[in-house]
Simulated assay, not measured.
Amino acid sequence: MRLERAELRRLDLPLRTPFRTSLGLELRRDILLVRVVTSEGEGWGECVALPEPGYSEEYLDGAAEVIRRFLLPAVAVLDDLTPARVASALACIPGNPMAKATVEMALMDAWLRARGVSFADYLGGVRGEVECGVSVGIADSIGDLLAEVAGYVDEGYRRFKLKVEPGWDVEPVRAVRERFGDVVLQVDANAAYTLGHARLLAELDNFDLVMLEQPLPTADLRDHAALARRLRTPICLDESITSARSAVDAIALGACAIVNIKAGRVGGYLEARRIHDVCAAHGIPVWCGGMLETGLGQAANLALAALPGFTLPADIAPSRRYFSEDVTPMITMGDGLIAVPRGPGLGLDPEPEIMERFTTDVATLTEF
């Protein structure tokens, strides 16, 4: 398989409810999709980078430039592209995991479609459905928080993740636990605390949480290990886990008992599978995180979350959680479960009319 042409497409997709980033509220989702045309067919990739460098060092315009100038040329020189060869070619360029994951996803989709194999089967998925959890952001008041969670309970989600930060932690969690009883509950700090907050974080032990996700800064594995010794609540690492090697280090240090795997954060679905395998070998449960993907990215995440080690509900939601219209047929949830696509490649195709309506820019590359 050879790369013959690529298309970088930007879309401006309205969000049903605002999404809070590190730099404010997003009312719309600025999306970068990459369509590759190869000698064997076409495939799609979705970039999960945000418009600004907040969640990570990467940002959307920068990722698009790296894809156009460096990543696509790195794979275009190869005559016999396979997913493994794509990953190897991209590894020669340091950093830029979200950009790399986009290119890997698109070429893997094309390669699998040509062979009639689904993402889930190729990665080793064993489940036909994935349990869905929902992430609940910082609310304006505890009353607003309880109302939002009540709506998600009625919709049938299997797990509820509350965002916390200094000043919004123990009392909101207490209120949700008291109001909704034994729902499956966890919290996500997005690295908002330091080891000096250990006594405060220990108060969360009173609420029977599944996990405390990424309480401390990304590089502080030793502090996470020290914190873990002072808490009963299991610590989950998210941003700290950037590769299978980093997962080995975190586990060896005792810095985590659970790992959140986001394919975009770690450079693609092949590295995500390696992290899964490392964690499975050490008895560490994993779950699949989300980054407000469209149906294309959600389809790939569902395939990943079908692997045997993903034993906790995923941050994968039906399309209407984020969008009134999706770029693919709407992904739906029933009884807290979403079916894993089983068609070739991603198993979902974009809706041309919707894609065109929300497209803001298209760059077509025929020379690399």
Rank of each mutant, 00 (worst) to 15 (best):
A257W: 00
D61F: 02
L146G: 07
S22E: 13
L50A: 04
A317F: 03
G334K: 14
L145Q: 09
E271R: 12
L25E: 15
R29A: 13
G54M: 09
V210I: 08
E171F: 12
A314N: 03
T38L: 14
A192Y: 05
E7S: 15
S240H: 01
L212I: 08
T294Y: 03
R127S: 13
G143T: 12
C92D: 12
S22C: 09
I142L: 10
L146I: 11
I138N: 04
L60Q: 03
R222M: 06
L200E: 12
L216Q: 03
T311H: 06
G343C: 08
G268T: 01
E131N: 01
R342A: 14
I284Q: 01
I275M: 06
P215M: 07
Y193N: 02
L23S: 14
R320T: 03
R5S: 14
S240A: 12
P18M: 14
A191F: 00
P14Q: 14
T102P: 01
R10N: 12
T17F: 15
I354L: 15
M98C: 09
P166H: 02
P166A: 07
T242S: 11
T82R: 07
P14S: 14
R320D: 05
L27A: 12
P313I: 14
I241S: 08
R199C: 01
P73G: 08
C92N: 12
A198K: 08
I93H: 10
R229V: 07
L32R: 02
V259H: 03
V77R: 15
V37T: 15
A306G: 13
I354M: 08
E155W: 12
A91I: 12
D277F: 04
N190Y: 06
H282I: 02
G268Q: 03
N260W: 04
A303Q: 05
V170F: 11
Y55E: 00
L25P: 07
L204A: 03
V340Q: 13
E213C: 02
E40D: 13
L123G: 00
Y157G: 09
Y122S: 11
I67E: 04
P73L: 10
R69A: 05
R232Q: 11
F70P: 00
A192E: 04
D144G: 14
R9N: 10
E42T: 14
A219K: 05
T233N: 02
